[in-house]
Amino acid sequence: MYAITVKDLVKKFGDFTAVDNLSFNIKRGEVFGLLGPNGAGKTTTISMLSTMLKPTSGKASVNGFDIRTNQDEVRKSIGIVFQDQSLDEELTAYENMDFHGRLYRIPKSIRQKKIMELMKLVELDDKKDNLVKIYSGGMRRRLEIARGLLHEPEVLFLDEPTLGLDPQTRNHLWDYIEALNKEKGITIILTTHYMDEADKLCHRIGIVDRGKIIAMDTAENLKNDIGGDVITIVSSEREELYSAIRSLSEIKSVEIHDSSITIGLQNAEKHVAQIVNTASEKAITIESLFIHKPTLEDVFLHFTGRTIREEEASAKDKMRMMRKVRRR
C-alpha cells in the first residue's frame, strides 16, 4: 500500500502553471525526495498534499485519505516542517510543543510524556523553558521537527529542512531524519535543492523542473544513467571537440552545454589522456578539465541541459515578472 499517491496534479496561479500534471506514488516507510531548483514547484506540491492549498485539478491521497474530500483525516496523518519558520518566538520551546499537542487533542498525561521524550530526542530537553526567540537556527529546526512528530504522524513532510543551516547542523539533522525513518518507520517526503542532501537521505528521488517530474529513481540509478564517471571540459571550441571525441569507443555519452562539454564514461582517469591528446592533435584549446564521480548536479544537467544554478536565476526572473504583473 502507498503512503502517498498523486495523479495528474495541477496547480495554476493565473497563467503561470506551478505544478504541471504531476504523478507519483510513495511507498510506506520510504524516504522520498523532491529535488529541484527554487521555483520548480516543490513547495506548491507539499502545500497541496498538506491541504494548505487547493489543487486546480488532479487527485492525490495521503495515508489513504483524499486531500480534497477528507482534509481532517489527512491533517491528522501528517506532520510538517515548513520551509519558513513557524514557531511562536514569544513562547518557550515547551509551550510551543504543548500548544501543538493541545491542537491535536492529545490527552494531557500522554502529551507531557511525549513532549519530554521528543525534546530529549532532539537534545533540547535542558533548554525546554527558554523562549524560542533566543534559540539558534539549528535549534529551531530541531524543535520544529520534534513538534511535527508529537502527534505520531504516518507521513512527515520536510520542506527544505536544512536551508540556511551550517554544515555541522545539517549533518546532525540528517542523522535524526535517518534514525526517525529507520526506528519509527515514518514515511518521509522531503524537498531540497541540495544534491548531497537528496543523495544521502532519500531512497528514491524525483527530479522536478518547471512543475514536472523529469526523472524518478534511486540516486544510484540516476547516476548510472549518465554512465559512470563524468569529465567536464570547459572550452570555447565545443563543437569541434564534440565531433573529435564522439567516435572514441570508451565514451558512453557526450553533451554540449552553454560553456562546457560533459562526457560520461567508465574509469575516467584511465582515458582522460586519450581525450586530451585527441584535442591537442586537432589544436582545440581546453580551458579547464575536471574528473569526478557523478553527483545529482550532473544528473540534473543531464536531464534538463541546465545546471541548477542557471535554473534558479531564471526562476527569480520569473518571480520578478509575476510580481510586476500583480502590481499592475
Binding site: 494548505m52 491533517r75 515548513f82 519558520q85 514557531l87 501543538h100
Partner: peptide
C-alpha cells in the same frame, strides 16, 4: 508574516 499561522491552519481543527 512570522509563519505561526500555518502551524494552526494545518492542524485538524
Amino acid at each position: 508574516q512570522f509563519g505561526f499561522l500555518k502551524e494552526t491552519l494545518v492542524a485538524p481543527v
